[in-house]
Write a protein that binds this DNA or RNA. Structure first.
Lengths: 337, 337
DNA sequence: GATTAATATGTTATCGATAACTCTAAATTA
DNA sequence: TAATTTAGAGTTATCGATAACATATTAATC
């Protein structure tokens, strides 16, 4: 590998002079500058980022941890984060935790070892707390995305899950549904809790009883348990006329199960959910959903993170919390009873 | 930040001893080992990867460059690559080029600066050649995914695009279609060329004339040009009875355009394409597709890359080329004429 | 008990860059 | 002309780790 010493030698100057040319610092005569630049081109020099980071004590490297890279919500979010990072000259590293605490732990470890300048993280759940404490302890700035973690104050970008759930239920009730089930992520995830809460509130508001049997708590994850869903469906007699899915993955899994027992949406049962199923939302304008501004989650979160990094030890203006509004998009998956 | 020297001082040993404990090298008495380990825990020590990499001349960092992070084909591929990397103790950095040469160039630059140990890349197109030459010049091992680049020999994992296109056309012909259009990616991308080629061959085989007007060459990219598609559709009189889409994104765009003019699939026109639309393929068992083993692209590609890296200057067994078979999955988007 | 071998640990140089300081020669000022 | 700036470089130490060599114990052998 070509180093700045190789350049220096060939150009007949000192390494420091080369460094000055590279970084455009200090005073350099036009003559040496061009000479050094020519040699750099000739030898195909590329600065060693690690050596730089070591002395500069900054990597310009950021980390984004998402829980499901195959979920369009998170990939769209990732694009937002990427765009914002790029605009500020930072590189962005992605990690995919699969809603798995152990994988998350591995990535946290990697972040610390790499000395990343900051982290954007959609935590796997409340049990991510020790991971976040680890980051805090090592003074790695981070911003939470999509999910809060009780016991940890920090910047965070959330969706209005409670309101979203309320609107979904309201929409169903408006269409005459009264037996409404909820398939949800784990209670150890703040967004799932909020959605359950919103569901319950909306039921109460509409004088509908909350029936625990109508709620299935499973996983938001990429591979949720199909047999659990099957068993749950079997247990529901009579079948609800409508389902609310806590996220897009669950909506898909549920649709699959329903279809396998010959039930059509919306003819036989109605279905609504959080998040678009695909990033090309217009592709299949079928499911009535609460659409979240996935791109904005990433973009705004990244901006907050960069703010933190750049004002490092400076005045800490207190933790900021952005709640992005939930937008109900009514399509064709709900039948008017 | 806690360094190895802080540990050394507090434990009353030299830095080298600490290093030995960390890496489990050399001989250390059980007593000092436990003492050092305790101090490491107390201070919350995390090794500085950059300092290590600098002296070891390896980063254990790999790079995956994909052209569209919102495309489920690539995210599934990414999961495969990630799993394989993880199994071998490598970290994986993702980059998203958006089919954009300039973005790709930026990432190549980042790779070189970071001194990544290797790269897995789905090149933006034939014009990626200089980028690959850059990698080659700096001796960064790489494996091409999904697309070849003329003029550059390397390990590569491909899908059998030509055969896939043949099968799609055959399927349509078998259902009685004779006026079959193709909406495809840019000719500067090898897979698009192969698909066009397969399409032409299949037409010929079935005694159908190749009509240039029936082929639209646009972009595989995340944001393809809708107006181009609209104009093309307008120009097609009479409308073809069936369409082949060169990838999933194009299928979606086309569906959208068709729908906007009141055309239903498959009642009014038939549509088949490459790649599943969503990673939950079963979700919407609607489009007849050539399904590619996206996960395997990533997994096998990563294995080849690691092979290269580990046998570095050792015997180079020649370039390897893996062609993954194309599987036709017949669903409901083709109407029997 | 002296010599040798093995075990445990320390020292120094190095990876590739930059910060902080130093030096030299030319340019400016008194 | 002598004194002082200043432009344009060079030197040295440092970031945090590890390799290679050196050294000090302790244990084993004759």
């Amino acid at each position: 590998m070509v180093t700045i010493y190789d350049i220096a030698e060939k150009a007949g100057v000192s390494a420091m002079t080369v460094s000055r040319v590279i970084n455009n610092t200090g005073r350099i005569s036009e003559k040496t500058r061009t000479k050094v630049k020519r040699v750099m081109d000739e030898l195909g020099y590329v600065p060693n980022q690690m050596a730089r980071s070591l002395v500069l004590q900054e990597t310009r490297l950021l980390f984004l941890m998402i829980t499901d890279i195959t979920n369009p919500f998170y990939t769209t979010l990732a694009r937002g984060a990427e765009d914002a990072a790029k605009k500020h000259g930072y590189r962005l590293l992605f990690g995919n935790t699969d809603e798995d605490l152990e994988k998350e732990n591995d990535y946290i470890d990697a972040v610390l070892k790499t000395r990343a300048d900051g982290v954007l993280i959609a935590p796997a759940g409340d049990a991510s707390l020790p991971h976040l404490e680890m980051l805090r302890r090592h003074r790695v700035p981070f911003v939470l995305l999509d999910r809060e973690v009780p016991g940890m104050d920090s910047d965070v970008v959330l969706g209005d899950s409670k309101e979203g759930a309320r609107q979904l239920v309201k929409q169903l009730v408006g269409c005459g549904h009264r037996r409404i089930a909820l398939i949800n992520g784990s209670r150890t995830i703040s967004s799932a809790r909020e959605r359950l809460e919103g569901y319950r509130e909306a039921l109460k508001l509409n004088d509908l009883a909350y029936d625990e049997a109508l709620v299935l708590e499973t996983s938001f994850g990429p591979r949720s348990d199909l047999t659990g869903i099957e068993a749950w469906l079997d247990s529901l007699r009579p079948l609800p006329t409508a389902f609310v899915a806590g996220n897009n993955v669950l909506a898909v899994e549920l649709m699959r199960s329903l279809r396998s027992r010959g039930l059509r949406v919306p003819e036989d049962v109605s279905l609504v959910c959080f998040d678009e199923l695909v990033s090309y939302a217009e592709m299949d304008p079928f499911l009535t959903v609460i659409s979240q501004q996935a791109y904005q989650f990433g973009y705004l979160g990244m901006q907050m993170l960069l703010d933190r990094i750049q004002s490092r030890d400076g005045q800490v203006p207190g933790w900021r919390k952005i709640v992005l509004p939930a937008e109900l998009i009514v399509r064709r998956s709900v039948r008017q009873l």
